[in-house]
Design a binder for these strands. Structure first.
Lengths: 339, 339
DNA sequence: ATCCAGCATGAATACGATTTCATACGACGC
DNA sequence: GCGTCGTATGAAATCGTATTCATGCTGGAT
């Protein structure tokens, strides 16, 4: 049986309220008794019961995180940043992976039940009823990485449209006009926006991308290989491919490898997220980099603000993105003013 | 203000105890009132206060997981398995990454404070005082992936020594005797055991590995590249390298790539963990595979058993490992009976 | 008819902390 | 010397649930 604050009080010869006062460093307590209590705390090896404290304080110290497929290395990077930021704010992190179908439902129940103080979604679909309900109840919720327009909650993203444009302009500046874009389903904001940015920037330069050069693709390496084999095996293959995330780009690179298509001579490949593997020598993938650390930090800041001050207006903070040029494309990106 | 079970009771015209009885499906309650309560629950949109419930039941429904560096893709794989297994047991998961220095301390405090029902360590050092203390107090703790001999708690691992042997015997069977082993500090059980298995199997076959062919190495790609450049740049370079995990192997492969050393002709490389990237076409790394899914499943089973029945004897369950042969080495592994 | 078992249910208690309320005491100003 | 104020502290209320205890009632067996 664990020792309670009442046990400590008995040892120190004071009342339980005084122990609590010392613990909370609040209210007046004479220095001598204060010392006596501190000694008793030490002697008994007291550990506060977090459940009881949470129940009374209506604050659990736990933040729920609903994350996308954790086997996509982008998410661990983001989680790492979130973990760091949360630990800095003395908060613990509960994790739900979106692979489990009911994860958002369970997460929302957790916050409704007071088991979590707030929720961070790194992935979300507009139709998710649990998310909708949580937002309707004005629970402290922050979307990071994904954005859902019209959803009344804080959202922290990077400018995916601009990122897509960046790649398009880079391709164009080097005369790569036979382009394709892989992935970017309408349901997922990141992919959709990235593709839109790319496609519209191409359109503005008079280049229409035919449907067969805009294949849909699961966001996994293996799915991308299959898509790539088809795309690159076409009688009139593209000379540059923009992939809406790095895992897909790796798959396209591997498809090119299997088919003996030379990268970057015959084919340029660009990805998105700039996960660490993109920089490895034999991958060497040009990719759009998001400021992951900042995204995480700001998301946590937003959540803290929302928890302490629920009536602040909702923020939509959007970071820039930059292109990390590597060997899967050749040539430095054009200077900004040349665009 | 959230609705409590007392509110529901008022709506249903019964006492709070009856509501609780319906909720818990325990004790006798007449079908008609039961229906009335269920309707009231529905109407009021009641969500139980998990803190209060946890406090009363002395069970939080939360399991703490202390994980190794989440940016090493092995850990997300393991976490994924753990998340699945925990969700199946209707448990939530709190995550601490070991990158934060105090993570194990905080995790242990969480369980001591009743905020978690049990702890799963996927990484741990023998000297960790928080871990020691938790074990001494017979708190429900399971080590998975790591093993610490003499520590009285459940441990679930795969046979890392056998895995190292497997690689050694594979190298030997194909006449690769100029071998090196990279990584495997004494502090980390997995690496140490893998190296020991490899080194001792080599020794049994009369092959002593000189110290300069046993470099230490951080478990990251970039550190491994530097180690690899040195190792392979040596006037008398090895013809086969065993790396204690895949990230390190990727780095060694890249070092070979930079130096123009042909893999697998001039150099064989083998890794450990068989993370998904190992199977990608342009990585194509031979690696020792652990049954990650089983490790995770059994770890959770162990923990559940320990939580419900604290006095069971401690188990040390150890799974086998197998070699996934790919292009970074050439030649099928020898049949088992040839070893 | 009586008694007892068992059922349905409400009242009360416990969980362990925080916080409010009440009280006793000492000092100070008039 | 008395009222008042501030300080130090203990007693009690509170958070929302699960569970135990108490009670009235019904039905069947003797």
């Amino acid at each position: 049986m664990s020792t309670t604050s009442r046990d400590v009080a008995r040892v120190a010869g004071v009342s339980q309220s005084t122990v609590s006062r010392v613990l909370q460093n609040r209210g007046n307590v004479e220095e001598s008794t204060r010392q006596r209590v501190l000694k008793a705390l030490e002697d008994t090896g007291y550990v506060p019961n977090l459940q009881a404290r949470a129940m009374r304080m209506r604050r659990s110290g736990l933040v729920g995180v609903v994350t996308g497929s954790i086997t996509n290395p982008f998410y661990p990077e983001l989680l790492d940043g979130l973990a760091r930021a949360l630990a800095g704010a003395d908060l613990r992190m509960a994790l739900w992976t979106a692979d489990e179908p009911a994860s958002s439902t369970v997460a929302v129940q957790a916050i409704q039940g007071g088991a979590a103080d707030g929720l961070i979604f790194t992935t979300a679909t507009p139709s998710d009823p649990a998310l909708r309900e949580a937002v309707a109840q004005h629970l402290p919720i922050v979307l990071v990485n994904r954005s859902i327009s019209g959803l009344h909650c804080d959202q922290v993203t990077s400018d995916n449209v601009a990122g897509g444009q960046l790649v398009a302009e880079y391709f164009l500046a080097h005369g790569r006009t036979e382009v394709a874009v892989v992935g970017g389903s309408d349901l997922i904001s990141t992919g959709r926006e990235r593709r839109q940015g790319f496609v519209s920037a191409m359109a503005e330069n008079g280049i229409e991308i035919p449907p067969h050069r805009q294949p849909e693709c699961d966001y996994t390496h293996d799915a991308a290989v299959n898509v790539g084999l088809e795309l690159l095996g076409h009688p009139n293959p593209p000379s540059a491919v923009f992939c809406v995330n790095d895992l897909v780009a790796f798959g396209i690179q591997d498809a090119a490898f299997r088919l003996g298509v030379a990268v970057p001579d015959a084919l340029w490949v660009a990805g998105y997220d700039d996960i660490p593997m993109a920089a490895w020598d034999r991958i060497d993938l040009t990719s759009v980099r998001q400021p992951i650390e900042s995204l995480a930090k700001v998301a946590v800041e937003c959540l803290l603000k929302r928890i302490t001050n629920p009536d602040e207006p909702y923020e939509h903070r959007r970071f820039g993105a930059e292109l990390a040029v590597r060997g899967s494309t050749a040539g430095a990106p054009p200077p900004p003013d040349a665009i």
